[in-house]
Design a binder for these strands. Sequence first.
DNA 1: GATGAATGAGCATTCATTCAT
DNA 2: CATGAATGAATGCTCATTCAT
Lengths: 204, 204, 204, 204
Amino acid sequence: MINASILERRFPGRRAQLKRDILLQALQCFNAHGVEATTIDMIRAQCDTSVGAIYHHFRNKDGLVAALFFAALEDQQQLMQNYLEQASDLREGIAALVYSYVDWVVAQPDWARFQYQAHSSVSKGPHGEELVRRNSERGSQVAQWLAEREQSTQLQDWPAELRASLIIGQSENYCRSWLSGRVSTPPTAYRDILAEAAWRSVSN
Amino acid sequence: MINASILERRFPGRRAQLKRDILLQALQCFNAHGVEATTIDMIRAQCDTSVGAIYHHFRNKDGLVAALFFAALEDQQQLMQNYLEQASDLREGIAALVYSYVDWVVAQPDWARFQYQAHSSVSKGPHGEELVRRNSERGSQVAQWLAEREQSTQLQDWPAELRASLIIGQSENYCRSWLSGRVSTPPTAYRDILAEAAWRSVSN
Amino acid sequence: MINASILERRFPGRRAQLKRDILLQALQCFNAHGVEATTIDMIRAQCDTSVGAIYHHFRNKDGLVAALFFAALEDQQQLMQNYLEQASDLREGIAALVYSYVDWVVAQPDWARFQYQAHSSVSKGPHGEELVRRNSERGSQVAQWLAEREQSTQLQDWPAELRASLIIGQSENYCRSWLSGRVSTPPTAYRDILAEAAWRSVSN
Amino acid sequence: MINASILERRFPGRRAQLKRDILLQALQCFNAHGVEATTIDMIRAQCDTSVGAIYHHFRNKDGLVAALFFAALEDQQQLMQNYLEQASDLREGIAALVYSYVDWVVAQPDWARFQYQAHSSVSKGPHGEELVRRNSERGSQVAQWLAEREQSTQLQDWPAELRASLIIGQSENYCRSWLSGRVSTPPTAYRDILAEAAWRSVSN
DNA sequence: GATGAATGAGCATTCATTCAT
DNA sequence: CATGAATGAATGCTCATTCAT
């Protein structure tokens, strides 16, 4: 069963009950068959509602996808922020980034699966600009955390473009493998190895 | 202009001229609009041929996608093999994996872009099993290379499932960023950093 | 800005404020996009009201169209009656018909445009019979005016079916051209020519 | 039964059989229910063909409407041209315009009905510019005929914008009445009266 | 009265695929 | 081998209308 707390936090209230249900069933359909292969009617059947209701709440299929996508993004970002706040030095900061990434994927595997899958769809669609904006926001958050610590200057040795890949690349790669079933051990089991590897990659 | 040598190697001869042209134009369309959004008729128009010809050569759309996908996969694998053969110890082996990955993406950006994009499409479709088989083949190649060297036992310290991610994850992550335009420096510029980071991640 | 006096005359009072506003915005939408292409929601947005309010006042879309249509028809008929009352002989009567037609179209171009456009819609719809009845009423008015004058027997030389076309056809044709922008000189500039032509057409 | 010769002339050959049939059934549907109220599926059912075939031949509904509209326009124009060529002086020219108009409507009532009905639809749609162009072509044809005769200078007394209305307005008005069933005598019965009235309207 | 969420039949259009020529 | 007309299931979406609050 999908974790629905993300939706309750984002669309609270009794009035939004149907809206949340549509999103939940849509998420399930998208993950089961792919975004493009999922039809509005499949979602409608899952919710036992009408197509009109779906269009009333989300304008169109892109809108539905985007609503899910940004809900996931924000939840993930929130967790990262929480972890980051508790880190005191650079090493802990990098571990926070890795841990939060890995923990979120394992806590919300359906949301994570959807995020990987829908990424290209959203970035090409009418909400592509919003995605760019949100991503740069996340970059700023991390940058600000770094700016507030002394030793962060260590990271300056690496090209700015490369830093994120060095820190999160291995974790992302393994998470994708896990979500697609190619490996079975959950990424959380390797949290420490991944954090240590990231640290060794950027420290000198 | 897309590098067509991959096709000439794989489908040689004058008789296969049209076949190669269809593949080339299809690749262009798929990258420009996405696999699902590309219609057979769009490809037909680009090649100035008939839909019948396309179906004659590739049976159906999935067949066309698969033909492109496996052509790319094989070319990439070939380069990896070449690089690996010239490596003599573990450190050089890991560098060979990183270099071959990065060099291929930069040499064939259109094929790489397509590979990322079409992956889920192929794995869900009727050629999904073939993909699994080819991937495990590649795993075996690397495993065999390792088996032939002494020091490879070093890698045994890390969980088998995790090794590929530790070695290639950062490179993949950066290559994706580059292909999607989020960063502009080609991954080859950072070959050495990426290889060094991979090495530090797995050595102890 | 559309001349709203027609509505104030027909739906007077402060209570009918919203009703008049709906009609006015509807007229604007109908002329801008066509009757069929205008949706209830477009009108709702223009009035900043609710769909429920529109349905409360007009029962359904046909009712809204009909309300506008008959308001226009009655206003036009009223002007014709006024002009006719001041005519003393046949020649003046024919001029009255031409003048009133032309003057009304120029005074109320939006209402006239709508009238031409909505005609087939209304005649096919549930208010089609009312339209027939109103049209024959107008015929009777003119017939009665003629019956009250001596010389009207002149018109008897022409087939009854043909009379209206001979008198008003040229004016109508030019008014349509003007409303659709194909010609730019307002029909009122040619009132006298049109009246004279009509007279010559039916006199002998 | 609709006169199909217009279509055979315009889309000749055995290969175009289905194309002609689609047009014919579409014309019937459009006249029976109105352009907007006619669905593609209604036409498909009438032709016992597939929706794909309709879209293959006409691209979309607008294309189907336009194909019919311009076929009618051209046929009507052809008849006008024929009549005009046989007229030797201005009076005969004006009669030719009236006769050709009236005769065409009576010979092709279904095409004429469609023409009146579809006019606004076409002029607003994607073929609106083509309509404007064709109309001005027709204007040129008449102008050229006039230029080749001496006495045509008589017409110069009337404003250019007004001439067409003076000549054809009454006929058009009566034809519309006849096609909609408001009068039952065919316009051809009044050809001479209408031509005479037009002549009296413009001569002095 | 006013509101607007919900309904669901209906529509234009697409597109992979087939097959007669 | 090549062509492209024909197929028709499937899809995203619209919109007039209803009705509970």
